[in-house]
Write a protein that binds this DNA or RNA. Sequence first.
DNA 1: AAGTGGTCTAGACCACAGA
DNA 2: CTGTGGTCTAGACCACTTA
Lengths: 247, 247
Amino acid sequence: MSQHEAAYRRVLGALRGLILRGELREGDRLPSVREIVAQYGVSSGTASRAISALAAEGVVVARHGSGVYVRRFRAIRRSSPGRLSRNLWGSGQRISDADVPERALVSNIEVGETAAPEWAAEALGIAADSPVVFRSRRYVVDDKAVQLATSYYPVDLARGTRITYTDTGPGGSYAVLAELGHAPASFTEYLLARMPRPDETAQLDLPGGTPVIEITRHASEVGGRCVEVNRMILDGSAYLLDYSFSA
Amino acid sequence: MSQHEAAYRRVLGALRGLILRGELREGDRLPSVREIVAQYGVSSGTASRAISALAAEGVVVARHGSGVYVRRFRAIRRSSPGRLSRNLWGSGQRISDADVPERALVSNIEVGETAAPEWAAEALGIAADSPVVFRSRRYVVDDKAVQLATSYYPVDLARGTRITYTDTGPGGSYAVLAELGHAPASFTEYLLARMPRPDETAQLDLPGGTPVIEITRHASEVGGRCVEVNRMILDGSAYLLDYSFSA
DNA sequence: AAGTGGTCTAGACCACAGA
DNA sequence: CTGTGGTCTAGACCACTTA
């Protein structure tokens, strides 16, 4: 019976109403599928569908075998350009740690050389598939992965330097670049929001209905040459970004 | 028969494969539900579900009665801080037009006074529910709404000025603020990505699987006082943002 | 063991698109 | 008109959680 309004939408609206009106709060459990079947007079498939739709909006999270719960939100602050100011990496702090909260852990570091992806090659001003040095890592906060990042460096700058070590030492890779006379002087960050690809969903352990923020940062030295491209994938529900600038 | 892998996931993966391998390109039509039923030996419900899931990833768009099509992407560039440089609104350009592409149209302008939402009141340094002047508008590109924006101003600054007119004149509201001796000098933009609320889905006419980017901009004059808060909701699939700054 | 969400079917009807 | 996606049912089985 599809009437004027789809049945699953009616159920969905009702459930959303419970949350918006505060009758269900963060962490509370929603009525079970079977309760919905009884209360709203729909089939189990329809009840399930309403729940899936709510999950796809990122409003609730289903825990198999346990129940469906109103989602909790928290936000990690990420401030630019303060995060990248020269004195941070000049003074031996790790820029990578400034990029994520203090209690963040870095895991799954991978370094090496590869053929440059097209977008990275273009940014670095080299031919596509040219070799580049890359650094891949994953940031974890409270046992939850929140960010993936991969940086690419021109081989003529980075090969054989501490950038190719798992631990780049105090100040991170930007300090190394500075020592080499190629200190980053200006940055441009390109942002877009989209739904995650399946591999990103897996690596960041994202619940349904969570978009990711894809940030591609170009770091250039004074002459304008790009000395690093960094692509980051952030759990959209975990971050609040801010950018400050003057008129 | 749920086996090791869910049937709808198998279908979903197969369809995604067609697109990733380039056998289906942007704008191409996917196999119909009934074709999928025949080819993969699943029920129509399962086939439909695979399609819904693909749509929820933002990979395809379903057109009722016509077919399911691989989604086309385009991006509107939005550059900061260049967009907000003083000479733009100093020289009679409309800041609002610089915020969106040249061919954008503004529609549904609404101005007036309301009780300040909590977040706006906090930004402006006034009590919640105090009266504020607001300007609401919607930007349309190629008949497609791409952005919603609402600005809030302190009543003691904006009441009775051109800010309360539908047309604020050359230079937009920032030029008016400047004339009044309260020129914005610094900006902070707070960004987050999330799935849209139902009303936003309707107003921006978003296909499923499209996140929105919520930007809250604080504009402050030299003394540090916040003279405008602007909350924008962007169609995530329509925008590529960029921010530039130096070390 | 009881309860939960997740998946699936086989077929039905509806609303819409397009030739 | 035919073909399309969208919705729905009634009940089934599975996998998981919790006690």
